[in-house]
Design a protein around this nucleic acid. Sequence first.
DNA 1: AATTTATGACTGACTAGTCAGTCATTGTCA
DNA 2: TGACAATGACTGACTAGTCAGTCATAAATT
Lengths: 229, 229
Amino acid sequence: MTSSSPKTPDATKQVRSPRSGRPNDPSGASNRAERAAERRAAIVEAALTEFIARGFTATRLDDVAKRAGVAKGTIYLHFKDKESMFEELVRTALVPLVNRIAAPQIPIGTVRDVIEAFAATFIREVANTRRGDIIRLIVAEGPRFPAIADFYYREVISRGLAGMRALIELAIARGEIRQKQLARYPQIVVAPAIVAVIWQSLFARHSPLDASDMLRVHLDLIFGERSET
Amino acid sequence: MTSSSPKTPDATKQVRSPRSGRPNDPSGASNRAERAAERRAAIVEAALTEFIARGFTATRLDDVAKRAGVAKGTIYLHFKDKESMFEELVRTALVPLVNRIAAPQIPIGTVRDVIEAFAATFIREVANTRRGDIIRLIVAEGPRFPAIADFYYREVISRGLAGMRALIELAIARGEIRQKQLARYPQIVVAPAIVAVIWQSLFARHSPLDASDMLRVHLDLIFGERSET
DNA sequence: AATTTATGACTGACTAGTCAGTCATTGTCA
DNA sequence: TGACAATGACTGACTAGTCAGTCATAAATT
């Protein structure tokens, strides 16, 4: 029974670290911790791409591993399982953005200016980026991942709507907005932005949508058309 | 139509033909074609429920069969495979509704009246029914089923928006709507309705939304508040 | 009896998650 | 500084389980 082991994993072993040939660079990016972080980032990037393209269930971790350039087992060094990976991804992909947007706005100019800046940020950072797809992903998978829906409601929706409501109330007090009931439904103000995101995912091929222009028209509807030349 | 409850597979081996004992009744409700249609309807009903709850990939045809009270093989007597079943389901679930809503509106009263009737229909027939979930399902699976996105754009979106645009233009001509640019983006008018559907699916548990009231406020925004003028 | 319709056990392809083994890097000591 | 030992990040073949789709058989109908 001296037969060699049936598995020959050594056959095609690629070089582990083609990292730039600096095995011990103090200022470089080649120590263990940093490369681990790089790999984790590659996995996150790849997983996000796959989840967006296929949804949770249809995404194969083999594909994620291949795309990230790691072995499947490596994924499990960073994440407990597919489900918690998905949840963590969706969370971390949105929190930085939300924190930035939800930062206390300084109403220097008119409320409309603030909301217009908000809209511009949304167009730039969400509507035409992968973050928009993440929003669609949340809509798609939310019902099956109550934890995600909970988190998202708590960290994004309730905070965002509260901030928007405060702005609307300020605008009403200042006379910028006539329709007083609007403060009860801040959703109305953001609805076209959400629709724009969905449109880009589903129908951009059929009929491109100028989201920026649409939001401008919507703000004209809310604040009245601009009379400045 | 599911006259009898389709979900009672508990009776081990249910009787295949619970008919009225008329083997050859021309006017009866138990000939082959009709029972086949009943079974098909039961399968459609069950499949829709499962697809809505779990999405396309995560839905098991074993579960659909169990819920419909048929054997799995029976599904394949009615549908070629899982994918074409899904596509056919999503299509037939919406077409009757769209045909009704898209029927030529007779603008007897004001345009606002027409749109308010439309909103009421939407609330009644979509927002709080399973059709709303189907809309979410399309958002969720659309990118992976281009055929569905195509069909939906052609049969629902483009038709619906064209009709809405015509109404907006009429309202502008009549002086009901001041904001002339609105005709370029009928999406703005329907956006809160879409958001309401999504909200019900994801966040109703956290914070119930009075969709009917929200749409009323939105129409006030577009047409101006009712009591004035 | 012949034909149509329904069944559900079965198959084969597919995939989440595991783990024994490898080896580049890091630590230790002379 | 150079040699050797220890570490643990990484690998990928493998296991155990799932599920879409099939088909031989059975039931119902004509």
